[in-house]
């Protein structure tokens, strides 16, 4: 709820402005150095277009996987009591705290060509994940899933369990209750979780480059493209950076922050 007509203390206003400036100034710097005359030309280069579509595919697939795996996980963390709950929760949230490079390294030793699962995937099914889009999706999901789970868990904890009980009382089975009562009640946090995990997956860099490597055809998403360009062609890097700002900002403005901030 927004309060109008109430004077905001000046000290709060000033501190808030400082915080906003810290977040906004880097983009002003970027915009000011961006070679706008060649913006469209660079942004529509084939390699850049491929990176954009790769980024979209990876972020969207990753958000979908988060949706499927994250709802039951978040709900169980919130509602079910079992031994080791604290450890499970800590492991689930680990990728949020861990540097993505460390996460990528861990993924490499588990699912990489020599990893203890990756090796079997390769010898049994002929599947290798590094340097593929699938690998990039796994890396992005690894870092994005905790955001989704956290969003579900926090609102599932507050969920009025009387409504679920009422549903059971009215003859609905537990699974039916989950789909017809629990999920609709979690609607806004599911949407917030999708938006958060999509955004996190879109910006993913460290885990992707460590685990999925830099393959121009399959794994070179916008952040990787930006990293490569920064070493070879700073002008290109600025355009790609600006492009990411534009994409992300337009997504956030479309969502109007509605899904991200629960009111």
């Amino acid at each position: 709820m927004k309060t109008k007509h109430r004077p905001t203390p000046f000290s709060l206003l000033a501190t808030a402005a400082l915080g906003f400036a810290l977040l906004a100034i880097p983009f002003v710097g970027l915009a000011q150095r961006t070679p706008w005359s060649s913006f469209v030309q660079i942004a529509t280069e084939e390699t850049v277009i491929r990176s954009i579509s790769l980024s979209m595919i990876i972020a969207t697939s990753s958000a979908c996987i988060c949706l499927i795996l994250g709802i039951p996980l978040g709900w169980i963390l919130a509602k079910v009591e079992f031994r080791g709950l604290k450890i499970v929760r800590a492991v689930v949230l680990l990728p949020m705290v861990l540097p993505p490079v460390a996460g990528g390294t861990a993924l490499l030793f588990a699912l990489g060509r020599k990893g203890f699962i990756g090796e079997k995937l390769n010898s049994w099914f002929g599947i290798t994940l590094p340097f593929t889009t699938a690998g990039a999706i796994i890396a992005a999901t690894f870092v994005a899933l905790p955001f989704f789970v956290l969003s579900i868990e926090s609102s599932a904890t507050e969920l009025d369990s009387k409504l679920e009980e009422a549903s059971l009382n009215l003859g609905a089975s537990p699974i039916r209750t989950f789909f017809t009562v629990t999920l609709p009640m979690l609607r806004s946090s599911i949407l917030a979780g999708i938006a958060l995990s999509w955004a996190r997956a879109l910006g993913e860099f460290g885990a992707t480059i460590t685990f999925a490597g830099d393959n121009p055809e399959q794994t070179r998403t916008l952040p990787l493209q930006l990293f490569v360009a920064l070493e070879t062609n700073p002008e290109r890097a600025m355009v790609i950076g600006m492009l990411m700002v534009v994409i992300s900002l337009s997504v956030l403005v479309t969502l109007r922050g509605n899904w991200l901030v629960r009111r």
Binding site: L163, A166, N169, G171
Partner: peptide
């Protein structure tokens, strides 16, 4: 016998009407 298989209804204080 789990709640959904009992031939009875418990109506909570306040009614617990589904808001959605």
């Amino acid at each position: 016998v789990p709640p959904h298989l009992r031939d009875l209804v418990l109506q909570h204080q306040g009614g617990s009407v589904f808001p959605h």
